[in-house]
């Protein structure tokens, strides 16, 4: 193991003291996020079994999923990952808080769009197909899995609002930079989880 840990996202030479501080805090946050992935893994495992054996006479995945709506949700979240990347660049290279705020704002809007589209999708499943969580084991774990991701994204949006307030009050100081870097890791990993959700839940459900 190397003595010096450089978290993937970093400040490099643009802010050396904070870059050094980031080694420990950001690595610690990585460990936390990996345990969060383990939580999602268990939900995925349960879903894999329930989506095949847990239909219980209720609607099957292929009947209730909508390819187009899932695609729009995916594109919104993917675009938000990119805008957060641009925010991370602004954080690293520009002391200009305006570019950072604009990219963060764009990320917030795209994240909110994702939540809106997913909520609309759930509403459609419930009203058109009567697909409520208590109908079958498949639907219980479907709402639990996508709902857990939904709550994570909503928490990310709340975190962004808190960071916007901190940026306004404290400016771009070291602590704020470190928190934004951790928020970046959190946000990108939520997109990684969504890749698994759209592949193994929605797309494989639509191609039985």
């Amino acid at each position: 193991m190397s003595d010096v840990r450089h978290p993937g996202l970093n400040l490099g030479t643009t802010d050396s003291p904070v870059h050094d501080a980031a080694e420990e805090t950001v690595f610690g946050f990585w460990v936390l996020m990996m345990s969060d992935l383990a939580l999602f893994a268990v939900l995925f495992a349960t879903y894999a079994a329930m989506s095949v054996h847990g239909i219980a006479g209720g609607p099957a995945p292929v009947e209730i999923f909508d390819l187009k709506s899932t695609l729009w949700q995916t594109l919104a979240l993917l675009a938000s990952s990119f805008t957060f990347g641009m925010a991370a660049l602004a954080l690293k290279y520009d002391d200009d808080r305006r570019a950072l705020s604009l990219w963060l704002g764009a990320t917030f809007v795209l994240g909110a769009l994702f939540l809106g589209l997913e909520a609309r999708d759930w509403a459609r499943m419930v009203t058109e197909h009567g697909a409520t969580p208590q109908v079958s084991g498949f639907l219980s774990i479907f709402y639990l899995l996508t709902g857990t991701h939904f709550v994570h994204v909503a928490a990310g949006l709340l975190w962004m609002l808190v960071m916007a307030a901190q940026l306004a009050i404290f400016g771009l100081d070291g602590a704020v930079k470190l928190r934004l870097m951790r928020l970046a890791i959190y946000w990108h990993l939520l997109d990684v989880v969504w890749v698994a959700i759209f592949s193994f839940v929605f797309l494989s459900g639509l191609a039985p």
């Binding site: 996202l9 970093n10 990108h188």
Partner: peptide
């Protein structure tokens, strides 16, 4: 996603993260 957005590559300094 890990490579381009989270900057995790095979560089020596990222090996702890990668492991």
């Amino acid at each position: 996603h890990f490579r381009f957005f989270l900057h995790i590559d095979l560089a020596r300094s990222h090996r702890d993260d990668l492991q």
